[in-house]
Each structure stands twice: as structure tokens, then as C-alpha cells.
């Protein structure tokens, strides 16, 4: 099947007084129609900026560079803001992580839901209104029609995030980028929203990039997983490959931090990977994880490349696949 999104060597550069900040350092991946890619990593690893870079929504001081950034056969790198705005919301949409502040306080829910559809599809207000009601119902909002004249401040956080999701679906985009859409929500609501996103994605046949720091979430929805660390992918593969046979020490560390029912002792402290992420200003010598990695060697001082180890399972590490698989690392 043809690639919907093809990204090669995507970088983000932010010039600062202290030097060039490089929060995204060469990301490459392909995404097919209907597929779900989960990008996992700690806060500050550059996963949000990656998604904003694809959408062309980076803050002004940040510069996007890429060898290739193709969406539905169209090169996005040369597009102006105006041309990008014709694609955004129409063919690719985004759900943000802050439902409380992501809706405009000055306009009604209905107005904000409808305006994208009217702008992209040129439909009448009543058509847009019908679609807004339909989608609000789809995201599980009861009495949807009565919500349209309401303002964001009248809704709870969970409701607002449902509205945000409905809003991203208004034009039935081919690609949805969800940036930690459930992080700001209650745990009970998180599960509902996740399930709903997954169902809607399947129903509408959309591809999805799902950004999260929560591996528990990833397990529920991912087809493919990319583990991101210090601005690069350190391991990519299918959900099965990553969960059943993780290779990169960082992935192993992350996985060992998730409590597993029945396996993790009750009351035992959850682990976290010791050490800190290297500064993202300027270049990084060698492997970015070596200062925290228990298997680091002198050879790690030269930067390893992301190489295919077996049937699409890639890993950025100097160690051999067989050796990596055998390593066990239980973070205390």
C-alpha cells in the first residue's frame, strides 16, 4: 500500500543565545493509510515538536528542516502558510493535550466546530451544524444540539477534549495527530476517550500518529511504535516487536517502569531510569543514552545509526540484535 505520510530526516532547530537548540534531530518514518504510529518518549524528547513540525505549527523561532516531508503524495516542505492552511484541518488534523486552553473562550462550541468544515468544504451553515451534532454524538456527548450554543468555560475538561476530538474529525481527515490527548484528563475519562479515538479511527479509516509518554496507552492502540529519545528515534517496530522483544536499553528501561498486574509487587516503588537527558543544544557526542545506559562501552562515543535488525524492527545501538535481546534491565 502507498504511503500516506513519508518523513525523512526531519529536524527542528531553535536558535538560542546559548547556542542552537536541536530538539528534533533527524526523524524518519513512513505511515500508511489507516495505520497507527505511537511515538513514545519522556517529556522533552522532542515528540510534541515532531508533531507540530509535521503540521507546520512550530513556534516562529523554530525552523523546520527535512530531506523529505510528503503527505498524500504532496511535498509539504515548500508550502506557504496559506497553502498549508488548506491542508490542515482538512486532510490532516490534530488533537492537543490541553483541552482547557485549546478552545477559544470567545466563541461558542458550535461556531468553532463548524468553521473548519465551512472553510474547507464550503458547505452551508445548516449542513455544518448537522455534521457538528453528529460528531458530538459520536464522541459521546449527549444532547449534542444543546451544546452548540455553549461556551468552552461552561464545559468540563473531559467534555472539552471530546469537543476537540469531534472538531478534528469534522472534515474526515486522512491523518490525525493526537498529542497526549488524554494526559490532562482523569484516569477514568482517559480510558473512555482512548477507546473512542480508536473506534472512530477504525470507523473512518484514518491514519494516526499518537504521541504519548505512557506505554500503558500505547499497548492499547498502536500498530507501530517509535521510541524517541533526545530528539531521535532509538527503536521502531510493530507493537508486538517492541513489547515482546524490545532491543534498545532505553526501551527496556521504559518498559520495566510500567507496573504489570500480578507481576509487580504491591507497594513496591515504581522504577524510573536514573540519570538525565543530555543537553539538546548543539551536537551530542555519540549515543545520547550512554550516560544512563548500564551497557555503555567506549564504542558508544561514536553515534550509532538506526539499523534494521529483523523484519522492520530497527534499533539505534552499537550492540548486536542477539545480544540486545538477551539483555535484561530491571530498573530499581
Amino acid at each position: 500500500m502507498e504511503n500516506l505520510l513519508s518523513v525523512k530526516n526531519l529536524r527542528v532547530e531553535i536558535p538560542l543565545a546559548a547556542g542552537q537548540l536541536l530538539p528534533v534531530r533527524g526523524i524518519s518514518f513512513d505511515l500508511k493509510k489507516g495505520e497507527t504510529l505511537c511515538v513514545v518518549g519522556e517529556s522533552g524528547c522532542g515528540k510534541s515538536l515532531t508533531s507540530l513540525a509535521i503540521m507546520g505549527l512550530l513556534p516562529k523561532i523554530a525552523q523546520r528542516k527535512a530531506d523529505r516531508l510528503e503527505f498524500a503524495g504532496k511535498d509539504l516542505t515548500g508550502l506557504s502558510e496559506r497553502q498549508m492552511s488548506a491542508i490542515r484541518g482538512n486532510d490532516m488534523a490534530m488533537i492537543f493535550q490541553e483541552p482547557m486552553t485549546s478552545l477559544n473562550p470567545a466563541y461558542t462550541i458550535g461556531n468553532q466546530l463548524m468553521e473548519g468544515l465551512i472553510r474547507h468544504k464550503g458547505v452551508s451553515r445548516s449542513t455544518a451544524r448537522d455534521r457538528a451534532i453528529l460528531l458530538l454524538e459520536k464522541v459521546g456527548i449527549t444532547a449534542a444540539a444543546s451544546r452548540l450554543p455553549q461556551y468552552p468555560h461552561q464545559l468540563s475538561g473531559g467534555l472539552r477534549q471530546r469537543v476537540m476530538i469531534a472538531m478534528s474529525l469534522m472534515c474526515t481527515p486522512d491523518l490525525i495527530i493526537a498529542d497526549e490527548p488524554t494526559t490532562a484528563l482523569d484516569v477514568t475519562i482517559q480510558a473512555q476517550i482512548l477507546r473512542m479515538i480508536k473506534e472512530l479511527q477504525a470507523e473512518l479509516g484514518m491514519a494516526m500518529i499518537f504521541i504519548t509518554h505512557d506505554l500503558g496507552v500505547v499497548a492499547r492502540i498502536a500498530d507501530k511504535i517509535a521510541v524517541m529519545y533526545a530528539g531521535t528515534f532509538v527503536e521502531t517496530g510493530t507493537a508486538e516487536q517492541i513489547f515482546n522483544a524490545p532491543m534498545h536499553p532505553y526501551t527496556k528501561g521504559l518498559l520495566s517502569c510500567i507496573p504489570v498486574p500480578g507481576k509487580t509487587d504491591r507497594g513496591s516503588r515504581l522504577g524510573s531510569i536514573p540519570g538525565i537527558v543530555p543537553s539538546l543544544i548543539g551536537g551530542i557526542d555519540g549515543c545520547g543514552f550512554r550516560s544512563r545506559c548500564p551497557y555503555a562501552q567506549d564504542a558508544c562515543a561514536t553515534e550509532p545509526t538506526l539499523t534494521d535488525r529483523e523484519s522492520g524492527h530497527t534499533c539505534r545501538c552499537i550492540h548486536e540484535a542477539s545480544k540486545l535481546k538477551a539483555l535484561t534491565w530491571e530498573v530499581a
Binding site: 522533552g44 510534541s48 543537553s279
Partner: peptide, 10 residues
């Protein structure tokens, strides 16, 4: 962008 922390220079 909330997770993007930019450290002030020393």
C-alpha cells in the same frame, strides 16, 4: 510546547 524546557544560560 509545555514540555519543552529551555534552560537559561549559566
Amino acid at each position: 510546547m509545555t514540555e519543552q524546557t529551555i534552560n537559561a544560560p549559566e
